[in-house]
Design a protein around this nucleic acid. Sequence first.
DNA 1: AGAATCATGTAAGGGGTTACATGATTCG
DNA 2: CGAATCATGTAACCCCTTACATGATTCT
Lengths: 186, 186
Amino acid sequence: MVNGEGAFPSLALALLGLVRDGARHGYAMYREWNEPNGLGAVWRIKQSRWYALLARLEASGYLTSTVQPQGGRPPRKVFRLTPAGRDAYLQWVRSPVEHGRQFRLEFLAKLHFARQEGPGVVADLIDRQRAVCRGWLEEQQAHMAEASPEQPFLYLVHRYRAGQVAAMLDWLDACAGMPDRYAASV
Amino acid sequence: MVNGEGAFPSLALALLGLVRDGARHGYAMYREWNEPNGLGAVWRIKQSRWYALLARLEASGYLTSTVQPQGGRPPRKVFRLTPAGRDAYLQWVRSPVEHGRQFRLEFLAKLHFARQEGPGVVADLIDRQRAVCRGWLEEQQAHMAEASPEQPFLYLVHRYRAGQVAAMLDWLDACAGMPDRYAASV
DNA sequence: AGAATCATGTAAGGGGTTACATGATTCG
DNA sequence: CGAATCATGTAACCCCTTACATGATTCT
């Protein structure tokens, strides 16, 4: 715990996806993130925080930067992945989320970048996440069985969660069944 | 904005529910919260934060406290609702949540206390929340229709959200269809 | 005798949001 | 000529989590 260490909010690793195929400066990454079909609709980040996250990723050794001066304008800070950054990114984009509350933002982010890695990566990710979700569902169903008689409120809580997880599984099935070049039809 | 003002994290109003029918000291409220059929399973609060929340609710004028000394032990701080606190609590417990992300914790908390207010309050709350959820569903479906052709990722995002909302609606229907004295059967 | 319970808190630190700062350039 | 864009950030504040503090009492 000397410097620049400390557990990372895993969602921040998503930003690495923007430089997976080449160097870009912070502002350009920010614009790409907020493009109509980008992740901005899922996870909104303010500019000030954006730059702070990039700085942290650099401090953690996942990004390096070089400064490009340009007449008049503030100089661009161009980022690229370090080998450690590439490892962390690939590990991140291929692994399912471990808690239901991460699905809403983080799994969607993973899926977004997995699509850019190719159909194989997408299929793998969805399969692994399905397995995790099936585990959640079983847990909740077990809790429902336990809570049923004397604890009606607890029963409702677990039934709610089970329903949410079941909807995730349906959606994952739909994603898996959808051709990757989905654009033309439907 | 003189003192003790500032918008409240609405979930904190749930704590007021513990003194809705009489005065209690902080530790007793904490134990009740964490009873097997209590809210502790839904929203876990550490002791240190618990006392901080109570202090804030008092500073905001929703609670008043009187100190009860007792031999040897630290004195109990007994809280009761102020009129403003009762208003805020009743308003809170009767109104649906406005964002999907509040459902998981806050709506369940509202439901928990609504059950203690009686079946009429429960039925009202569920009805109002159903209306709100139907609105969310329509929104997401509209987004799906818009995003469909050129933005496959956005389409998936909105389809995911629609699925989650649909599951909420199913669950609300199940809650409404469930007799309030559900304990004995099933 | 040691552990859990009773009954309060304080202190430090991490993470995020909001607001503010800068200063040239291109667009309408 | 004013507004939006380009391209970076810093500062202050709030919320929450984790860790630590206290000191008698009842349970095992």
